[in-house]
Amino acid sequence: MGTMLQIDDINVYYGAIHAIKGISLKVDQGEIVTLIGANGAGKSTTLRTISGLLKPKSGKITFEGKNIAGLPAHAIVKAGISQVPEGRRIFANMTVQENLDLGAYARQDTDGVAKDLKVVFERFPRLLERKNQEAGTLSGGEQQMLAMGRALMSRPRLLLLDEPSMGLAPLLIKEIFSIIQDINQTGTTILLVEQNANMALSIANRAYVLETGRITLSGEAQKLAASEDVRKAYLGG
């Protein structure tokens, strides 16, 4: 299993604010890697930088052997990375079907797209029932499923998820996490950002802990879950 994504010492700024201070991390093919940390630690900033919405001031981002740092966001989707953004960001004024169509925007293979649409509807039957409904009228959980389905429609090799559990009831969080595991088992590598560290560590292979723009801990998810420091800081004792 080779390295799929390698980040080397990136620095990211918002104007004068130094949000990411020299982060390095990697994701191997087939893994679920999670990035955990408190509010404002820089988790979303890291994902947004990988997706090309932000440009790192320095450092390298290598995906499948190519340096993608500085590429425009739409080119990074084409390269095989897709993101489910924080807060879902579905196109509320469009139908469920249109949202999914947009997910496949960069693809030319009509047959493949039709096949993947079927797969998404099998995975999320509720989206099929509501495919002509305006996406803004979906419940929070359904919107999360739509955001995930939409991201899968680009057939990514690496899927970035930013706080998929946000604002969902515990039962629904369980469902979403088991879907994430399932997506991973069908061959998609996953980088998962979560505040719900317990859940994230329970499904991840490896984890990184982010604190105010720096990685302070990293290792196997199970070991981190057992570690005293992590328990105190992120797992509520």
């Binding site: 953004p85 196109f91 004024n93 469009m94 960069a106």
Partner: peptide, 24 residues
């Protein structure tokens, strides 16, 4: 049309549109 959907997407949320692979 595809370009029409892209126009609506960019107009609604330009960042998320880019995450769909749309060249805004």
């Amino acid at each position: 049309t595809k370009i029409g959907k892209a126009m609506r997407a960019v107009s609604f949320d330009v960042e998320t549109a880019q995450l769909m692979g749309i060249d805004a």
